[in-house]
């Protein structure tokens, strides 16, 4: 296999929360993404998936670890070098209502990105470029002079996508880009993202909790639990043959909109809830809810190992 486009090694992000205590939001994760590939990152709220996405593109300063994008370690970049790199990596946010400035027109929201990176020379060129981009995502040129409140949720998300695309990035972190949208609109946005990926050769890190949608979008999927990646595999392998008990429970919990499949399915109902990340369990983080937990799980954290080619899991069951 060729050199991966994105390489993340031992990435951690700790937040200080007073009295010298730290919250280990992301606790030593590693993964790679090939050029043009989509890696899905799933987990429940509070597992650290959004923090992971933001730390990878240095919206948060990592506590430790390395992130290599196209061979350059971006965690070491200084101001000017970082700005040049920002052009290559962009983000699409979850909430299309909160992530657009309500006092700016669409032209300025998108134009701002062009200005910062000096990508246009004149006002006419700026306007032309914005209109061109709007048409690319299925909006029309006349939308440029409007304000965010004049748009529906799905349209706003298209504006968010346009802003990310304006600087011609190579890598985009999509942080729950569809979870605030209605079901009938979600498919529109997902199709657009896949379409753009094909046209422009984009690489995606797709953070979400909707497992059916993640499976559809992603080539490979990483499952996070309490700041750690517990399983990583090709999408089909993860769904057909999940190795980690948490992934198994997570998959069985998805309600399927089909009475036939639902009747056949055996659901694993997990005990309890996500432990407090301020005070994570010893050993394996999942052991407090795991139906297979043994003594060893409390004593020793399982290593993240390749259980079969390309399929990684962190569980003592597969030692």
């Amino acid at each position: 296999m060729s050199q991966p486009f994105i390489e993340v090694h031992g990435l951690t992000k700790y937040f200080p929360v007073g009295r010298r205590r730290v919250l280990k939001a992301v606790d030593g994760i590693q993964f790679t993404i090939q050029k043009g590939e989509t890696l899905g990152l799933v987990g429940e709220s509070g597992c650290g998936k959004t923090t992971a996405g933001r730390t990878v593109i240095r919206l948060y300063e990592p506590t430790s670890g390395r992130v290599l994008i196209g061979g350059t370690d971006i965690t070491r970049l200084k101001r000017s070098g970082l700005k040049a790199f920002r052009r290559k990596m962009q983000m699409i946010f979850q909430d299309p209502y909160a992530s657009l400035n309500p006092r700016m027109t669409v032209l300025d929201i998108i134009g701002e990105a062009l200005d910062i990176h000096g990508l246009v020379k004149s006002r006419t060129e700026r306007k032309y470029r914005v209109e061109q981009l709007l048409e690319l995502v299925g909006l029309s040129a006349e939308h440029a002079s409007r304000y965010p409140h004049e748009f529906s949720g799905g349209q706003r998300q298209r504006i968010g996508i346009t802003r990310a695309l304006a600087v011609e990035p190579e890598f985009i972190v999509c942080d729950e880009p569809i979870s605030a949208l209605d079901v009938s609109i979600q498919a529109q946005i997902v199709n657009l993202l896949i379409d753009l990926q094909k046209k422009m050769g984009l690489t995606y890190l797709f953070v979400a909790h909707d497992l059916a949608m993640v499976k559809y979008v992603s080539d490979r999927i990483a499952v996070m639990y309490l700041g750690k990646i517990v399983e990583l595999a090709r999408s089909e392998d993860l769904y057909d043959d999940p190795q980690h008990p948490y992934t198994q429970a997570l998959l069985s919990a998805i309600p399927i909109p089909d009475p036939e499949a639902e009747a056949k399915k055996e659901r694993i109902i997990l005990r309890g809830e996500l432990p407090n990340p301020m005070n994570p369990p010893s050993g394996c983080p999942f052991r407090t809810r795991c139906p297979h937990a043994k003594e060893r799980c409390a004593q020793e954290a399982p290593a993240f190992r390749e259980v079969r080619p390309g399929h990684w899991a962190a569980c003592h069951l597969h030692a």
């Binding site: 529906s152 609109i185 979600q186 498919a187 529109q188 199709n191 896949i194 499976k215 559809y216």
Partner: peptide, 22 residues
């Protein structure tokens, strides 16, 4: 509505069928 949801066995090259408009 039913068609716009991805099936778990849906391959990536088979696009979702959205409901257009709002």
């Amino acid at each position: 509505l039913l068609k716009s949801l991805p099936r778990l066995d849906q391959p990536k090259n088979e696009p979702l069928i959205p409901i257009y408009g709002t």
